[in-house]
Computed example of a mutant assay.
Amino acid sequence: MDQAEYWYAVASVLLFFKMFAISLYQGFHRIGKGTFKTPEDAAFVGREPAKEELPQVQRAARAWLNDLENIPIFLALGIAYVWVGAASGMAVWLFLVFTAARYLHTFFYLCGIQPWRTVAYAVGVVCMFVMTIQILAALP
């Protein structure tokens, strides 16, 4: 297996686990506090629906939305990176630094830590721009 393919696969799996962890985080807070905004979920546990989501759930939802703005773009760029045979040696750095930046971004988002949340976001974006440059450079 090509080095870029390998690291793309590793990054994809790690990003899946990260996003799944956000779902678990939300469920942990909802179940732990017995607070559900969705009527059928509240009824299932014999409670009235909450007027709004818990603050932890709201923050996690915003982190999830930020992932949905960035991770699919990374995944698409990663496929293009592998397909065109872009710099294989850089793949490990670009793919894993992006993944680490997304993990840190989520951690900083959930903890409300600035400016580190923005720094982590910017590192991920820089990785995607470098990937784009490498893709374009590899085109005939």
Rank of each mutant, 00 (worst) to 15 (best):
L15D: 03
F98M: 02
A138L: 06
Q134M: 03
F17C: 14
L96W: 00
A80W: 02
L68D: 03
K37G: 03
F95W: 00
A9N: 10
W64V: 08
L96K: 10
A9M: 14
L96A: 04
Q114Y: 09
G46S: 06
M19G: 07
A138C: 08
G124E: 11
F108A: 12
A60D: 15
V82W: 07
S88Y: 02
M131V: 01
L136H: 00
P115N: 05
N70P: 08
L136S: 07
L68R: 08
F16L: 10
A101P: 07
G112Y: 07
A87Q: 02
A21H: 04
I133R: 05
V130W: 05
N66V: 13
K37V: 14
Q58S: 12
V123D: 03
C127Y: 05
W116M: 14
A11L: 11
R59D: 04
E53D: 15
V10T: 09
A86G: 10
V92P: 10
K33E: 09
N70Y: 03
L68E: 04
L15E: 04
P55T: 09
G27M: 13
Q56D: 12
V97W: 00
A122C: 13
Q134R: 11
A61T: 09
K33G: 00
A42C: 09
F74E: 02
A60W: 08
R102V: 09
F107K: 01
V82P: 03
L94K: 02
E5K: 14
F44A: 15
G27F: 15
E5R: 11
C111N: 04
A4P: 13
F36S: 01
V10A: 08
L110N: 08
H105F: 14
P39N: 05
I79C: 08
G85M: 14
T99I: 02
A138S: 14
G112P: 00
K18R: 11
I133D: 05
I135N: 04
K33H: 08
K51R: 12
V45T: 01
Y81P: 06
G34T: 10
Q3V: 07
P49Q: 11
E52P: 08
L65V: 07
E53Q: 09
V130Y: 01
V97N: 08
P49N: 03
L54G: 06
T38S: 02
A122Y: 07
A122N: 04
L24Y: 12
M131G: 06
N70W: 09
M131N: 00
Y81W: 00
K51A: 15
I71W: 14
V57M: 11
Q114E: 15
I133H: 03
G85A: 11
Y121F: 15
Q134D: 10
K37E: 12
L14G: 02
I71Y: 14
Q3S: 12
D41K: 14
Y109D: 03
P49L: 07
A50L: 05
L68H: 13
Q56G: 00
